[in-house]
Design a protein around this nucleic acid. Structure first.
Lengths: 204, 204
DNA sequence: TTTGCATACTAAACAGTGTTTAGTATATTT
DNA sequence: AAATATACTAAACACTGTTTAGTATGCAAA
């Protein structure tokens, strides 16, 4: 019965080819420049073939999004290993911002675009990996609240506060709005601002 | 010489018609659903005519963006009138978030989409109204820093910190990512988080 | 009044987009 | 060998922004 298995493997291989082509095109031409027809052209199949492997474009974007989380995890390794909760929050913040700044297209897919999320709606799946990330942050916040006996009781509110701060910073950087604060100082501004955020919460 | 004037007035009127149609369509079908052809259809002219009044679609989005700032100013009236700097920051924060939550499409145009900004690049204009808003916030921050003698010396960093916080919160709400913290609690979560943000900075 | 010209506008085309349908080869099973 | 299932695609549909070439209309000078 090796035949059915071979067929299945070949199906999986073409699916993977589509995904790899999509990734390549997105990294070269951005999320806006990614089209079904470009993918089809790249893998030398017709556009209609893509739809035998993916329901629609949103599903492709959703699978790319999941690859993005794998990439982000690599930025987080130092943070995951840190024992001290407060120090861990600092490391998470830095890693999050570094990832966001260095991987605009991945970041937008994971945290900004609503297209991969539309696929979730259609399929009633969850935003698994994002949820895991948030829970990890919230747990770290709980540790920090206990250790520093902070006024803030709710660790999920504190986690949302931290997330909003860094998300806002990354988004302003991406959309070039940060340039108006001080031109050509993006990197420095972001580092300073992140520091102020964390200090104002933990280092009073 | 009333003729030339009448002609000019008629040109301005059609330009305004285009803009009003664009606004109407954007509010009904969102920014994604706004197309040159829909505008043309609405005002009963051909799509090509639009290009006699606007360079491209980005210029239309840019002019809509400026209308958005007028709308936002209405939310800010109470904040503008407030005498106390710290209280003013609280009011600005609330107004900003209310505007953002109640006017997703306007907000995206003003603070997230890069399309109206592309027009700025092409024309070497500035992001005037956004800049004015930021300066107003920064000036208020300077007052607050002086009055509370806060550690934070740089009012523009503090302003960026505040802006990032509320911008991040609004963007997470728009992209439904906030749902994962606690489903169907969006409004409450945002209010609580905004409060924590401001308290952690000013009320230590 | 007639000619000439600028203005205002548009039909149609170009080059894209996501997606669907109907049909064709190829390979497997009966 | 015939029937069937699989894998794939050409072509179409309904859109998108934008450009080009051409057509009326109205005004001004001859």
């Amino acid at each position: 019965m090796g035949l059915a298995e071979r067929k299945e493997r070949e199906k999986a291989e073409l699916k993977e080819m589509i995904l790899q082509a999509a990734k390549k095109i997105m990294l070269k031409h951005g999320q806006e420049g990614l089209s079904i027809r470009k993918i089809a052209n790249d893998i030398e199949y017709s556009p209609a073939t893509i739809y035998l492997y993916f329901k629609d474009k949103d599903e492709i974007l959703h699978e790319l999004m999941e690859l993005g989380f794998l990439k982000m995890n690599k930025y987080m390794t130092a943070a995951f290993a840190e024992g001290d909760a407060v120090q861990r929050i600092y490391l998470i913040g830095e890693a999050y911002i570094n990832f966001g700044l260095e991987n605009k297209d991945w970041y937008d897919l994971m945290f900004s675009s609503d297209k991969p999320m539309k696929h979730i709606e259609k399929c009633r799946e969850d935003w698994d990996q994002g949820m895991m990330m948030f829970d990890f942050l919230a747990n770290t916040c709980k540790e920090a609240i206990d250790r520093l006996s902070l006024k803030s009781q709710d660790e999920r509110i504190l986690a949302l506060q931290l997330w909003s701060c860094v998300h806002g910073l990354v988004m302003l950087a991406h959309s070039e709005r940060i340039e108006i604060v001080e031109p050509n100082q993006k990197e420095t501004l972001i580092k300073k601002t992140l520091d102020c955020m964390l200090v104002s919460i933990f280092d009073k």
